[in-house]
Amino acid sequence: MENEAAARFTGASHYVLDDELAKIVNISMALEMPLLLKGEPGTGKTMLAHAIAENLRMPLIVLNVKSSMKLVEALYQYDTLTRLNDSRFGDSSRDVSQIEEYIKMGKIGQAFTSEVRSVLLIDEIDKADTDFQDDMLDVLDQMEFDIIEIDKTVRTVRRPVIVITSNAKKDLSDPFLGRCNFHHIAFPDPKMMRKIVRVHFPDIDAALLENAIGTFYRLRELDAIEKKPATRELINWIRALKADPDFRPKTLSKGDVPYMGVLFKKSGDYERAASTLQRRRVF
């Protein structure tokens, strides 16, 4: 217990952490408040939760929010289908008269009932509607919820570390924000990006690294691109470049961009980027 309370988050093997963010994580853990992370895709919001879990050796429970999701699905599910099946055929060890045997915990429920402290990642909260968000925060605040079917209250065994991510540029509702700590992760600058790439490819060739990152940031600056390439695309792209035996880093400095489909995933973006590059080469 002592040890765990004193646990400090310092970073993980595949995640480059900046000091500021580490402090925020530690303070949120100490205050037992959820941490809301915003920032454009590819800034490592989701990765942070994985890193915390790895670093503090806690199990990670991920709730991927979907637009149609109801809160109760995240808490628990009453598996009526299995119960009906059991009652008709009666070939299971479960007791059909006990509804509790047919209650399955959802992701939030699992985090609450877990015997060890866990990291609960609620990913892309902005997809759900406002009511879902507010109701969920109520549950997370009180750290308990009711199972209506069996009239039982589930309380947290060990309060989980909660990380919430949001892609939205718009703000979430005020009551929601009031209960979270907030951090906005800016897109990494080239220097940080070099560190990140090195973590993934420790033996990367210096010329390749420089050229790839230079090209990457140039491509990000193109106008009217709907989905800008992010860290994930860069890493996949470098992987592709490394895998190609014919590739030379010099090609990049000449303005050629092989495997552009790895970077631009929308056909409109791809065409726009391709034509812009074409034009640049002519002049």
Binding site: E20, I24, I27, L36, D171, G178, C180, F182
Partner: peptide, 23 residues
């Protein structure tokens, strides 16, 4: 909590707790 020991810490902590939008 004892986690805030310097002005730097205070800056980080106060921003993440008080300010809820990057705007």
């Amino acid at each position: 909590t004892g986690l805030v020991v310097s002005l730097d810490d205070f800056y980080t902590a106060s921003r993440s707790i008080l300010v809820k939008s990057e705007r």
